[in-house]
Write a protein that binds this DNA or RNA. Sequence first.
DNA 1: CCGGCCTGTCACAGCCCTGTAACAATCCGC
DNA 2: GCGGATTGTTACAGGGCTGTGACAGGCCGG
Lengths: 232, 232
Amino acid sequence: MSHTAPRVLVVEDEAAIRELLVLTLRQGGFEPALAASAEEAVNEIRRELPAVLLLDLMLPGTSGLALAKRLRADERTRTLPIIMVTARAEEQDRVQGLEIGADDYVVKPFSPKELVARLRAVLRRRAPHHSGEVVEIGAVRLDPGAHSVTCGGQPRNLGPTEFTLLQFLMHHPNRVFSRDQLLDALRGDHSFIGERTIDVYVRRLRLGLGPYGETLIETVRGLGYKLVAAKA
Amino acid sequence: MSHTAPRVLVVEDEAAIRELLVLTLRQGGFEPALAASAEEAVNEIRRELPAVLLLDLMLPGTSGLALAKRLRADERTRTLPIIMVTARAEEQDRVQGLEIGADDYVVKPFSPKELVARLRAVLRRRAPHHSGEVVEIGAVRLDPGAHSVTCGGQPRNLGPTEFTLLQFLMHHPNRVFSRDQLLDALRGDHSFIGERTIDVYVRRLRLGLGPYGETLIETVRGLGYKLVAAKA
DNA sequence: CCGGCCTGTCACAGCCCTGTAACAATCCGC
DNA sequence: GCGGATTGTTACAGGGCTGTGACAGGCCGG
């Protein structure tokens, strides 16, 4: 699978600014998607989850703030990074934005360089999943910051995909995930990868975890896989 | 995966493309239904509501767009997922599609894999895991999310069918179900399985529950089985 | 350019699950 | 207690699902 440009959904009602943003984003190596209203944005997001949302706060109809709240309430879009676009650096806007958990904001007029830089920063921050928090279950320890995994103190070497897979499972222990769901977690919504490929990654992950692998990751026949936390 | 293939209604006037779609859908584990026009589609939908609609925008007579709007206006079909099929990724088509709230769209020519992937994604999105809550009766605890069952703290291993059977019974304790009813609960309405097979699954479930099995699931002679909740 | 790593797919073997049949055990009315 | 009906138990064939090893292609660094 080719490394595709991150999809950035622009929610902006003024056509002129939209055009400007599209050019800037293309130039910066992003794939722009467009929505002129909150409603269009919702549809577009339902269609395909973008990597980042570039959101104008001042929209006709449903405001950008309301949209952001709505997205934060939905499981699927809860962690979607949002960059606010505000006309002025008003204290009120900033406070509101931070309340709903916007990841960053830019102030009009903004320079293309600044915009691209902030987008990259947000993506970089999100890339190692949920911040750099160390997760530990049983004898297995995963450190996103160091990109390292240890089993009972023994350092283990995992490939990128196996690492991400383990990270996802450790964030949701004792829960069964279908192959489809795991594919979503690894490659996003619209990957054309066969489900059976997950089997192979699970196997590689089990091997990578050494003796712990077999007991830690359980197969649930007909459903998928789950990571079992050790019982008390 | 549910054992019944999701029904996909294909609305497409070109016979050649219809055939191609039918093959692709069968291959992908779906059950295709066909309509050559918007009118046929309406009839087919009235007859039996499909899981997804695969809708060509360019149709003779009533256009696909008009059909989509009509479906969105009707209470019964408002939430029916629609995937548009467009000849080209024309901006106008896309905007129109998003306006009526299409869930996704594919562009001709499309790859079978892509189509199947998008169908699955849409279905997954609509039914975000039918998991639900933990049920607990007496010493028996059933966790759908983890797909795990414990008896007095002891983890028990049940096959898929036994698990589903137990789940159904725990949701309706102290009530007798005929073998027919239990078959419906397990395999859906139209299964050709002999009733006696239920006996075997009840036995397997009793065995799977260990010492609790015999007392928990009671035989009601001439009627069927019931799960008895502990007496006060 | 080369070599190594990662990715995604396939084929095949093996196991589990499924559904059925046959037989044993139990229950009920008489 | 007897006989028929109902249920419990076991064994088994077939199919489906998963584990596993191998392999081609892509990407990247040397």
